[in-house]
Amino acid sequence: MHNVTIYHNPKCGTSRNTLALIRHAGIEPEIIEYLKTPPKRETIINMVKQAGLSLREALREKGTPFLELGLDQPNVTDTQILDALEAHPILLNRPFVITEKGANLCRPCEKVLDLLPPMPPKAFAKEDGTPVLDEQGRRVI
């Protein structure tokens, strides 16, 4: 697997754990720090669609201007959501990962396993010590 991209925020534990799982698979992904280099509208639309989500499901509420912008209202359109994402990239939930197998919002980080090749026979734990893979590379969680 060669083309793996992660829309990453290094301040986010889930994003760091997801990146670590990708690297555990022996893959060095393209890392896009989306707060520094926000994805274009078309990219957001495509990755959200590929992940099987709505734009609303791709929004992050915590630590963002979600409520201040009125994005919690049921009548908010996709165009309004895209406008908000362009103006405030922090609203995009993370981490999004795109591989040859598809795209996913990897919350929790274990969701990235569905997009990667089989893991090597080696244990993996999250930063907080929670086991994810056993010594055979099988999911624990």
Rank of each mutant, 00 (worst) to 15 (best):
M1P: 13
M1Q: 07
H2R: 13
V4R: 13
T5H: 03
I6M: 08
Y7K: 01
H8Q: 06
P10T: 11
K11Q: 13
C12D: 14
G13F: 04
A20F: 03
A20P: 02
L21M: 15
H24P: 09
A25L: 03
G26F: 02
G26T: 06
G26Y: 05
E30C: 09
I32W: 08
I32Y: 02
I32L: 07
L35W: 01
K36Q: 13
T37Y: 00
P39D: 00
K40R: 15
R41I: 02
R41Q: 10
T43Q: 14
Q50R: 12
Q50V: 10
G52N: 12
L53I: 08
S54A: 04
L55P: 04
E57P: 05
E57Y: 12
L59K: 06
R60S: 04
E61Q: 14
E61V: 15
G63L: 09
T64Q: 06
T64M: 03
P65Y: 14
L67H: 15
E68F: 01
G70Y: 11
L71P: 08
D72K: 12
D72F: 10
P74W: 13
N75I: 06
N75K: 13
V76Q: 09
T77L: 05
A84V: 01
H88P: 02
P89A: 12
I90T: 07
N93R: 15
N93C: 06
R94C: 06
P95E: 03
P95C: 05
F96I: 01
T99W: 04
G102V: 02
G102A: 00
N104P: 00
R107F: 10
P108G: 10
P108Q: 04
E110K: 12
L113T: 14
L115E: 03
P118Y: 08
P121G: 07
K122Y: 00
A123W: 00
F124V: 04
K126Q: 10
G129S: 06
R139W: 00
R139V: 05
